[in-house]
Amino acid sequence: EVTIKANLIFANGSTQTAEFKGTFEKATSEAYAYADTLKKDNGEYTVDVADKGYTLNAKFAG
């Protein structure tokens, strides 16, 4: 089991951190699915991958 950390950075400057656990593939998929649920209210996002894929920095356009 691994933990994927998602740093969510919103256009207004606020941030949120979420963690997803499971296999690498499952946890990564859940992190992206969570970011997708936030698109409606926060706009499209881009992701910078860090820490060999164990940290995802998602920046929302607003």
Results as ranks from 00 to 15, higher is better:
residue 1 E to A: 10
residue 1 E to W: 14
residue 1 E to K: 09
residue 2 V to T: 06
residue 3 T to F: 05
residue 4 I to S: 00
residue 5 K to D: 01
residue 6 A to I: 15
residue 6 A to H: 01
residue 6 A to Q: 04
residue 6 A to N: 01
residue 7 N to E: 05
residue 8 L to E: 01
residue 8 L to M: 13
residue 9 I to N: 06
residue 9 I to T: 11
residue 10 F to P: 01
residue 10 F to R: 02
residue 10 F to D: 01
residue 10 F to G: 02
residue 10 F to K: 03
residue 12 N to A: 04
residue 12 N to V: 03
residue 12 N to I: 04
residue 13 G to C: 10
residue 14 S to A: 13
residue 14 S to M: 14
residue 14 S to N: 12
residue 14 S to E: 14
residue 14 S to H: 14
residue 15 T to N: 07
residue 16 Q to F: 13
residue 16 Q to T: 11
residue 16 Q to C: 15
residue 16 Q to M: 14
residue 16 Q to G: 08
residue 17 T to R: 09
residue 18 A to C: 15
residue 18 A to T: 11
residue 19 E to I: 14
residue 19 E to W: 15
residue 21 K to W: 10
residue 21 K to I: 12
residue 22 G to Q: 00
residue 22 G to T: 01
residue 22 G to N: 05
residue 23 T to V: 07
residue 23 T to P: 10
residue 23 T to K: 07
residue 24 F to Y: 11
residue 25 E to A: 11
residue 26 K to R: 12
residue 27 A to R: 00
residue 30 E to T: 06
residue 30 E to M: 13
residue 30 E to G: 05
residue 31 A to V: 08
residue 32 Y to G: 02
residue 32 Y to W: 08
residue 32 Y to K: 07
residue 33 A to D: 08
residue 33 A to L: 09
residue 35 A to F: 15
residue 35 A to Y: 15
residue 36 D to I: 01
residue 36 D to T: 04
residue 38 L to I: 05
residue 38 L to P: 00
residue 38 L to C: 09
residue 39 K to R: 12
residue 39 K to H: 04
residue 41 D to E: 14
residue 42 N to D: 04
residue 44 E to W: 09
residue 45 Y to W: 05
residue 45 Y to L: 05
residue 45 Y to E: 01
residue 45 Y to H: 02
residue 46 T to M: 09
residue 46 T to Q: 09
residue 47 V to N: 01
residue 47 V to Y: 05
residue 48 D to Q: 13
residue 49 V to Y: 09
residue 50 A to L: 14
residue 51 D to E: 07
residue 52 K to W: 13
residue 52 K to N: 15
residue 52 K to D: 15
residue 54 Y to F: 14
residue 54 Y to G: 05
residue 54 Y to Q: 06
residue 54 Y to V: 05
residue 54 Y to C: 10
residue 55 T to M: 06
residue 57 N to W: 08
residue 58 A to R: 00
residue 59 K to V: 14
residue 59 K to G: 04
residue 60 F to P: 02
residue 60 F to D: 02
residue 61 A to T: 13
residue 61 A to M: 14
residue 62 G to L: 06
residue 62 G to F: 07
residue 62 G to P: 07
residue 62 G to D: 08
